[in-house]
Design a protein around this nucleic acid. Structure first.
Length: 237
DNA sequence: CCCTGATTCGC
DNA sequence: GCGAATCAGG
């Protein structure tokens, strides 16, 4: 497998979207996790919370207490460099799995909904969810609308559609903060695409898919037991 | 053990 | 440039 323009774009998008190297590798197919990481670095995509990376090259004086606190700022936070942009005042309510959607909550209308082959497995952008009222999902406050999906949409020109099967579909490259990112099918499949509808403002999905993604937590007793296959999973390992 | 990303180094 | 091998933290 070679790094085509499309594959590089997918890598970039997924990497910046917070997907792990393994997920990206699996989605791309034909490459290893290491390959993805290696490529990401070569693309200068680095900077990501790494498990092993607290090391700063010039931290010499380990033994003595240096206390090199530069700015004795009188007020509050020193604002560490690796500032995770999570303006979140988390309510104490437990957050249920947003994407699994294992349980079909609403009264079945006989119709199983759309012909989705699978539930969203690779979450395109993990929806922040908080308390879920019995009535359904709650809106985000306007203040936290800015960061959630595509922060600085570099609205780009799509070079060329990779294949004819995907023509007219919403691909990874078409995603922006205004269209529904609900995945249809599986990454790697030729027709994998996204919903592409207009989003429910403040959410990464359209109204219909918000209904799937954000569901009230049911009492345990009448919950669907089997989430049989979380992923169409040829996880061969 | 599993996972993660970072780095190295032969190709 | 590529990616397996290796490293190292969680």
């Amino acid at each position: 497998m070679s790094w085509t323009e499309e594959r590089i774009q997918t890598l970039k998008t997924m990497w910046e979207g917070g997907q792990t190297a393994s997920q990206i590798a699996e989605a791309l197919g034909g490459v290893s996790r290491n390959a993805v990481i290696g490529k990401a670095h070569r693309l200068a995509l680095q900077a990501r919370p790494s498990p092993v990376k607290p090391n700063e090259p010039d931290a010499k004086a380990a033994t003595a207490a240096p206390a090199p606190v530069a700015a004795p700022a009188p007020a509050a936070k020193p604002t560490p460099k690796a500032a995770a942009p999570e303006p979140e005042a988390a309510p104490p309510v437990a957050a249920p799995e947003p994407v699994g959607a294992a349980a079909e909550v609403d009264a079945d209308d006989g119709d199983d909904g759309e012909p989705i082959a699978a539930e969203p497995v690779a979450k395109p952008a993990a929806p922040i969810l908080r308390s879920i009222g019995p009535g359904g999902f709650l809106r985000q406050s306007p203040g936290e609308q800015a960061p959630p999906s595509t922060p600085a949409p570099p609205r780009r020109l799509v070079p060329a559609k990779p294949s004819a099967e995907i023509a007219g579909k919403t691909t990874l490259l078409d995603l922006n903060d205004r269209i529904c990112k609900w995945p249809l099918g599986h990454p790697g499949e030729p027709d994998f695409h996204f919903c592409g509808d207009k989003v429910n403002p403040g959410f990464p999905y359209c109204v219909a898919h918000c209904g799937h993604a954000y569901q009230a937590q049911l009492p345990r007793r009448d919950r669907r037991p089997p989430p049989p296959l979380p992923f169409g999973g040829p996880r061969v390992r």
